[in-house]
């Protein structure tokens, strides 16, 4: 279960200002039932003073969504619209004594609802219909504008944070490139405006996309995280696992297609693979020579620093994995 503060629990179990507000003259609705949370914020604004006299909410969502909504109403009652517009989602989180990082999107939902309600009062169109820039995340209906605001307001610098604050990228993650571009763009603007240190900013191409994407998926429990690769000791001839992981996997049709490989072709492919790995082995003072290919068994001779090295089994399985990825057939690599 989540580590909710006592205040979150209190505002969830005994929400203040819950229910419909009949005399509301400002209404903001955000989220959708399909996304797992939705909030309808209703405000009663005194026209002469623009003071928010009363606020109520209706929320479909988890504990922190309900608590955040209730906190929002407590925060805005008595404020003028101008004051209310200055509020950020962080104010909601702070009011509750903090939210678990994965639940920050609940506070963002509150912020968005407030903006929407005030826009509604002023007769403006609240751009929650994905017309504010492109719709980035189709799974959760998050547009570019919302991502930009969340990044700017909370100084977000990673894709993981963007997902925690906006839910964008929390589903299929096909929007990864779009999220990345948006995050990098806003971070660059923030650096130019002096709001963010340059080294903190997210830069396109700063990290291998494959690695970042994999990390984002792991964080969300989509795939199991691989063991942290240990840094290779200088003398040990070991193929770092990321060097292998970066090779794109073959299409799923590859294994069957390569079933009809001729022996000659197979040997050539094996040779090629070993050739590709040789620089990494040499770097560590080792070497590897192909002796024979017998069916799916590849016989190799390790030499140099590889001989007697405890890491040689890692090297062997590295070659094996590389062969499987490259040729699409399971090979057994045997040192002779």
């Amino acid at each position: 279960m989540w580590d909710y503060t006592d205040k979150v629990k209190d505002y969830f179990f005994n929400p203040k200002n819950a229910g419909a507000l009949a005399e509301a003259n400002a209404v903001g609705e955000v989220g959708a039932i399909s996304c797992g949370d939705a909030l309808k914020l209703m405000l009663k604004v005194v026209p002469e003073t623009e003071i928010i006299e009363d606020a109520r909410f209706q929320t479909f969502g988890c504990g922190s969504a309900i608590a955040s909504s209730s906190a929002l109403t407590e925060l805005v009652i008595g404020k003028t619209l101008t004051e209310a517009l200055e509020m950020t989602n962080q104010d909601i989180a702070d009011f509750l004594g903090g939210l678990p990082p994965e639940k920050m999107h609940c506070s963002v939902m509150g912020y968005e609802a407030l903006q929407a309600a005030i826009a509604n009062y002023r007769g403006e169109e609240w751009h929650d219909d994905h017309e504010e820039g492109a719709l980035l995340c189709k799974c959760f209906g998050v547009d570019e504008g919302m991502v930009e605001r969340a990044v700017r307001m909370n100084k977000l610098t990673t894709i993981e944070q963007v997902t925690a604050f906006t839910k964008a990228g929390g589903g299929c993650l096909t929007c990864f490139d779009g999220l990345e571009a948006c995050l990098a763009k806003v971070n660059a603007e923030m650096v130019a405006e002096g709001l963010l240190a340059e080294h903190e900013a997210y830069r396109l191409g700063g990290t291998s996309q494959a690695v970042v994407k994999q990390k984002a998926r792991e964080m969300r429990g989509f795939v199991k995280a691989p063991e942290e690769p240990k840094p290779a000791p200088a003398a040990a001839p070991m193929i770092s696992l990321d060097q292998i992981a970066l090779v794109p996997p073959p299409s799923s049709a590859a294994p069957s297609a390569s079933g009809g490989l001729t022996m000659l072709k197979k040997i050539r492919l094996v040779e090629e693979t070993i050739e590709e790995m040789r620089p990494y082995l040499r770097q560590d003072g080792g070497d590897c020579e192909l002796i024979d290919v017998d069916g799916n068994t590849v016989k190799v001779k390790l030499s140099g620093a590889c001989v007697g090295c405890q890491m040689s089994s890692v090297t062997i399985s590295g070659i094996q994995e590389r062969l499987a990825v490259k040729i699409g057939l399971p090979f057994r690599v045997v040192p002779v």
């Binding site: 969504a65 839910k167 929390g170 429990g221």
Partner: peptide, 11 residues
């Protein structure tokens, strides 16, 4: 089976 209990965002 809700999303919010698991830490993922999807049910």
């Amino acid at each position: 089976g809700s999303a919010c209990t698991s830490g993922s965002l999807e049910p």
